[in-house]
C-alpha cells in the first residue's frame, strides 16, 4: 500500500509542478516526477507478498516458481526507455527555444496568448 501512496504522491507532485511553474526546465522536471510515479504504481501492481524477483536462477525456483508478477516489470522497462527519449527530445526543444527567445519563462511569450 505504501507503494501506491508513494507513486500517486509523486504523480500528483509532478502534476502540481507542471501546472504552477512557467519555467520550461521546471515543467520537464515535473514530467519526470509524473513518469516516475506512474512507474512505481505499475511495479506495485505486480508485487506479491513473500516472493522473489522473476529470475529462475536456482533449482528450487524452477520447480516452485514462487515469483512476483513479471509483466508490469516488462512494461515499465519499455516505459523507462520511452521516458528517456521524451526527456531528451524535450530538453533539446528547450535549448532551441532559449536560443530563439532568450528566456525560459513561458509567460513572457506573447504569441501563446489570445
Amino acid at each position: 500500500m505504501i507503494y501506491y501512496i508513494a507513486g500517486g504522491g509523486l504523480f500528483l507532485i509532478g502534476l502540481y509542478i507542471l501546472l504552477v511553474n512557467r519555467n520550461l526546465i521546471k515543467m520537464i522536471i515535473g514530467l519526470g516526477f509524473m513518469e516516475t510515479g506512474v512507474n512505481i504504481i505499475i511495479i506495485a501492481f505486480g508485487y506479491v507478498k513473500g516472493k522473489t524477483a522473476p529470475i529462475l536462477s536456482t533449482k528450487e525456483l524452477i520447480n516452485n516458481r514462487q515469483v512476483v508478477d513479471p509483466l508490469p516489470q516488462a512494461l515499465v522497462l519499455t516505459a523507462i526507455v520511452i521516458g528517456v527519449a521524451v526527456t531528451a527530445l524535450a530538453l533539446s526543444m528547450v535549448v532551441s527555444y532559449y536560443k530563439k527567445r532568450g528566456s525560459l519563462n513561458l509567460s513572457k511569450n506573447k504569441e501563446l496568448k489570445w
Binding site: P54, I55, L56, P70, Q73, A74
Partner: peptide, 9 residues
C-alpha cells in the same frame, strides 16, 4: 530464458 522479464520483453 532464466529471466522471465527478458522473455516477455
Amino acid at each position: 530464458a532464466t529471466n522471465i522479464v527478458t522473455d516477455i520483453v
